[in-house]
Design a protein around this nucleic acid. Structure first.
Length: 274
DNA sequence: ACGAGGTCCTGCGAGC
DNA sequence: TGCTCGCAGGACCTCG
């Protein structure tokens, strides 16, 4: 669930709370969120190490602990929170990872569905992981021409390509729907059939929406919480996502909701998006 | 190489 | 009221 703006919000909220803090010990309640590590290695790797940075890459929060990185992919329902003890019953039930800090608080990774994942990577592991991800849409150095060509190389539906983390990172289902509407592009069109101008327009609208969503502190549909535990504010700005059947804000045509593209909810205006 | 579809999980709301 | 069913913001895998 959390897409780029949500994770960016979490990271901005948590960085001042966590940087310089030492993790005293850690506990994991379920192994099924781990990738490439074991419960023992994770908890041992976190214990007695200091958090030196909290950053974002793609839709992942990256905690620099000791000489490693804890990569948190929140999946659909993951959240990172710093809480005082004792945890609320709700937090207690869904806190997959607890890390006791040296200021008496607990950093928790909260995840109801546990579709999220945790990785603990050394420098080499991180390099490899990072290299497999596409460019950051809000990077000032983003090579737009290269991205346009990369996108247009695919015959897949443009919506799927926009959500492909190897092509461009950070865009999930909500913002893909919103960006395609803003750019006036039918989500089902083959990416290869977009003109250069259309692809540029889509990238530009994607960037604009992501920036605005960060300002709005992300979109809360159900589970997403900021790093301070609050709901985001951007959901009220969605023009298509969650509005199937309602009139298009541009032309009044009823918005169509389908699941035909990659099995994900797609909402579009057949009149405005071609 | 591609697209379609299933899988991992739990909770919730709709409908019967 | 209580049950079952389908669906949910992501990512990964297998199959044909």
């Amino acid at each position: 669930m959390p897409e780029l703006p949500e994770v960016e919000t979490i990271v901005r909220d948590l960085a001042p709370e966590l940087i310089g803090r030492r993790i005293l010990r850690a506990r994991l309640s379920h192994d099924d969120v781990l990738r490439g590590t074991t419960r023992r290695r994770l908890t041992a790797g976190l214990a007695n190490s200091t958090i030196s940075a909290v950053t974002r890459r793609a839709k992942h929060a990256v905690l620099h602990v000791g000489n490693r990185r804890l990569v948190v992919q929140p999946g659909m329902t993951g959240a990172l929170l710093v809480q005082p003890e004792p945890l609320s019953p709700e937090d207690s039930k869904y806190a997959v990872l607890r890390a006791w800090l040296d200021d008496q608080r607990i950093l928790i990774y909260h995840d109801v569905r546990r579709l999220g994942t945790l990785l603990l990577l050394d420098d080499a592991g991180w390099q490899e992981y990072d290299a497999a991800l596409g460019p950051e849409p809000l990077d000032p150095e983003l090579d737009i021409d290269a991205l346009v060509e990369r996108m247009r190389r695919s015959n897949q539906a443009i919506k799927k390509v926009l959500m492909d983390q190897r092509v461009i990172v950070g865009v999930g289902n909500i913002y893909a729907n919103e960006a395609l509407f803003a750019a006036g592009i039918d989500p089902s069109r083959a990416a290869s059939r977009l003109s250069q101008l259309e692809a540029r327009g889509l990238i530009s609208e994607t960037q604009r929406i992501l920036r605005n969503a960060i300002i709005g502190r992300g979109s809360t549909i159900r589970d997403y919480r900021t790093g301070t535990g609050e709901a985001g504010g951007f959901q009220s700005s969605h023009l298509v996502y969650g509005r199937g059947g309602e009139p298009c804000v541009n032309c009044g045509t009823r918005l169509t909701e389908t699941h035909l593209i990659d099995g994900r909810t797609t909402v579009l205006c057949h009149n405005c998006q071609r």
